[in-house]
C-alpha cells in the first residue's frame, strides 16, 4: 500500500468539520470515487468528527490518499484526539449504545459505511479511529 498524498486537519469547532468535509470531498473527486461511496465516506467522517468534538473537545484528522494496485485507490482518514478515551470499545460499537444523548449509531454506523475500520482507545489518553474507503467497493 502506498500513500500518495497526506494532510493533517485540526478540528476545534463545527466549522472545521465543514472544512474537513469539503477537503475530503475534493480528494474523493480527484480519485474519481463514485457519488454513493463518497457520500458514505463523508457521512462516516461526519459521525466521527462529531464524536471528537463532543467527547474530546476536538483533535486532528489525518487525510491520506492511498493506492494498493493500479485499479484500487482509496481514502484513509485517521481521527486522533486526546479526550477521555472509551472505557469499553465493544459496548461503544453496539447499535443503540450511547453515553451521551444520541441515537448511539455513530460508531457502528460509521463502520458499516466504510471498507475498513479500526479503533484504538486508552482511557485518559485519547482515541484514534482509522477508516478506509476504496474507490470501488
Amino acid at each position: 500500500m502506498i500513500t500518495i498524498n497526506s494532510e493533517t486537519i485540526n478540528i476545534k469547532t463545527e466549522q472545521d468539520a465543514v472544512f474537513l468535509r469539503n477537503r475530503v470531498s475534493e480528494y474523493a473527486n480527484k480519485i474519481k470515487m463514485g457519488l454513493v461511496n463518497q457520500t458514505k465516506l463523508l457521512t462516516a467522517a461526519s459521525e466521527l468528527v462529531r464524536n471528537m468534538l463532543r467527547y474530546a473537545g476536538g483533535g486532528k484528522v489525518l487525510c491520506e490518499v492511498i493506492s494498493q494496485s493500479v485499479l484500487q485507490t482509496g481514502i484513509r482518514l485517521t481521527f486522533i484526539d486526546n479526550g477521555p478515551g472509551i472505557p469499553n470499545i465493544a459496548d461503544a460499537m453496539k447499535d443503540g449504545f450511547s453515553t451521551g444523548k444520541s441515537l448511539g449509531i455513530g460508531l457502528p454506523g460509521a463502520k458499516r459505511l466504510v471498507n475498513e475500520f479500526q479503533i484504538k482507545s486508552q482511557e485518559g489518553e485519547g482515541t484514534s479511529v482509522t477508516i478506509l474507503k476504496w474507490k470501488n467497493g
Binding site: K40, R112, L113
Partner: peptide, 14 residues
C-alpha cells in the same frame, strides 16, 4: 432526498 443520501442513511441504520 438525493439517492446517495438515501442509500447512506439505510446503511447507517437510520
Amino acid at each position: 432526498m438525493q439517492p446517495a443520501v438515501a442509500i447512506t442513511l439505510i446503511e447507517l441504520g437510520l
